[in-house]
Write a protein that binds this DNA or RNA. Structure first.
Lengths: 135, 135
DNA sequence: AGGAGTGTACGATATCGATCGAACACGTTG
DNA sequence: CAACGTGTTCGATCGATATCGTACACTCCT
């Protein structure tokens, strides 16, 4: 036996309750990571693999971003075959930082820093209630 | 007329309504800037000059932080003599990013790497609507 | 078994921002 | 006016991190 080095099975998750505000902000400050969260919010849980996201970065960089989001308690991952499925930890993260995730999800789909600084007044429509409101 | 009373220094303010989420997060990600906001929240408006804050940085760096906060629509400044008084733009900023400023102000007074905040047992009772039954 | 697909680990680079000291500008006070 | 206090601007430095290419590990498929 050659010591099965199962790295991929070694998925370390961080409970949102244990996340410091500093780490949460660090994770959310990156526009690529926010786009991941927004894209993930539009679909059911555990239906999107890491590779199915349309990101303007390389595969290695994308993997890094997913790891950061997981470490910040923002998403839960689950290995399904060769793919790694993702789930947005809406309610848990919102319980720790009320309203924060909702702001990210309400952000314009492509508000990197190009242009389109969304008009004030039309930025309060979340596609799916981020758990902030009552069920 | 060569600008009779040119307002002393050029104070450019940004309306919180015109602030992009990216800029808001960039401003709030720095721990020194968050400590400024927290300290400012404890006192009446326009009663604290920039120099009266106890910050672990030099005078030049502190000035930079105040400029960033002002540009992010987080504080309003007013020149009074040689001093520059500050006001936290609570309601305006909260109208643009509901809950965001509250998270910062609720942060522990010295949250360098501290995770005081609230008890984990208090924020863990959230009804999970998604059927992702884990451990 | 072999090959393709998916994702991570690692080392290297590059860019961005926080930081500082010094010089400057403005205002008050002696 | 001179001296001092307050805050900004400038130029440089330094550390963090986003990024990439490559190599590797694991899983599924034929």
């Amino acid at each position: 036996m050659t010591e099965p080095t199962r790295r991929r099975r070694n998925l370390v998750h961080t409970d949102p309750a244990d996340v410091a505000l500093q780490d949460a902000l660090d994770a959310l400050t990156d526009p690529v990571r926010r786009s991941i969260l927004r894209e993930l919010a539009g679909e059911p849980d555990f239906t999107r693999a890491c590779g199915t996201f349309d990101l303007p970065v390389s595969k290695a960089t994308a993997s890094h971003h997913f790891a950061v989001l997981r470490a910040a308690g923002l998403l839960e991952q689950l290995d399904k075959g060769a793919r790694r499925l993702n789930r947005l930890r809406r309610s848990e993260f919102d319980a720790r930082f009320p309203g924060l995730l909702a702001l990210v999800l309400a952000e314009g789909p492509s508000t990197d820093h190009d242009r389109v600084t969304c008009r004030p007044g039309e930025a309060a429509s979340v596609p799916d209630s981020a758990g902030a409101g009552r069920s």
